[in-house]
Structures are given as C-alpha cells and as structure tokens.
C-alpha cells in the first residue's frame, strides 16, 4: 500500500507540495496528540495521525523522518506551517474524519 493509494482511499486533502507518493510506502503508523509520546512512539517512515495542526508538528515529523502527518477533524494548519513543511519536505494531509476513524481505515488497509 503506497501513500498515493492511502490518500485516495481515505479521501485525504494534500496541504503541501505534490510528491511521487506512489513511491512512498508507509509501513506503520502512530496516533497521539502529545508530542513527547510521538517522539518515542512513532517509527521512521511511518504515518502520524493527530489533531494538532500547529507548526511544531513539522519539526517532530522532520526529526523522526515520518512519511506524512494526517491532520484529523479538518483542523487547518496556518500558511506558515505549510510553508515550513514544504521547506522541510514534510507532507501534510488533512481528513474531515476524527482520529479514531482514520486509524481504523488505515488498519483495514493493512497499515499496522
């Protein structure tokens, strides 16, 4: 399952620049809104599902080299955050669904 298929299946909105998402294969994921938990829990190359939409999530994802952040419940990061994400090469995706449902769908798709 590549990131392009995940974006399509979950109807995610791409907030940052286009990338060859079909080449990116997230193997696992992590869900939490507490940054310290993400720091220990999230794996390199994994997806991160969160309600947080402020600029500090970009630093966390960059540091951990995550494949993308899925921001839930339609929370909208500001322009500066999107800019920073583009600068750092971090992909931001947005879902209208809540974290519970997004994680459930990812699990169904085999991201475990």
């Amino acid at each position: 399952m590549n990131l392009e298929q995940i974006i399509q299946s979950l109807d995610l909105k791409l907030l940052t620049e286009q990338k060859p998402f079909h080449e990116i294969q997230p193997t696992t994921g992590y869900a939490a809104d507490l940054l310290s938990c993400v720091m220990t829990g999230a794996s390199r190359g994994g997806l991160w599902v969160t309600l947080q939409a402020h600029s500090n999530i970009v630093a966390v994802a960059a540091l951990l080299e995550l494949s993308a952040i899925i921001i839930t419940e339609g929370a909208q990061p500001d322009e500066a955050t999107i800019q920073k994400a583009n600068d750092e090469g971090v992909t931001l995706l947005s879902s209208q669904q809540d974290t519970y449902r997004v994680v459930g769908r990812l699990w169904e798709l085999g991201i475990r």
Binding site: D33, L34, L35, S36, C37, M39, T40, T50, Q52, H54, N56, I57
Partner: peptide, 9 residues
C-alpha cells in the same frame, strides 16, 4: 493544548 507538557520529556 499544543501537545506539550505530557511530562515525558
């Protein structure tokens, strides 16, 4: 609210 202060740092 920003997700800091989990006391896990």
């Amino acid at each position: 609210e920003l997700g800091f202060g989990a006391g896990m740092g």
